[in-house]
Amino acid sequence: MGASSSPTVLRTILGSCVGICIYDRMKKIGGMAHILLPNNPGDGIPEKYADSAIPLLITRLLKDGAKKEFLSAKLAGGASMFKFNASVTLGQIGERNVEESKKILEKNGIPVLEEDTGGNTGRVIDFFLEDGRLKVKAGGQEKLYYKV
């Protein structure tokens, strides 16, 4: 997990993990959580799970001076294996990560403005803290998401 102000770029590589990028459009402060699994069993490292990492990131951003009403989120990642037996729960982990991330963001009143999730591709993402834009490189192609 990382939180900072401009001109930093936060980069990560995602498979089934989800990158949650939260940005304050007025203060131009942002941070990223890179989660592996949806739910913290209780004693897990909080940064690894959507339901504990996202509240932690929000708290940290607020502490750094962000205001909740100016925060918005972008999501990327959550890909799945091409083929797996339906009884193997790990197969749905990408989808579950995206769902749980959205649920926790909604609970905290943070709108999800852009989403590049699902499918079977890996993603290299760059989150630019100068303006909150997100660059997603997947399968040899790049996309930019500007909404903040």
Partner: peptide, 17 residues
């Protein structure tokens, strides 16, 4: 799945039962 060394072939693979 954790993104370590995930390349252009992404997750276009099977998780074998």
């Amino acid at each position: 799945m954790a993104g370590i060394g995930i390349g252009a072939d992404g997750l276009y693979h099977e998780l074998s039962d």
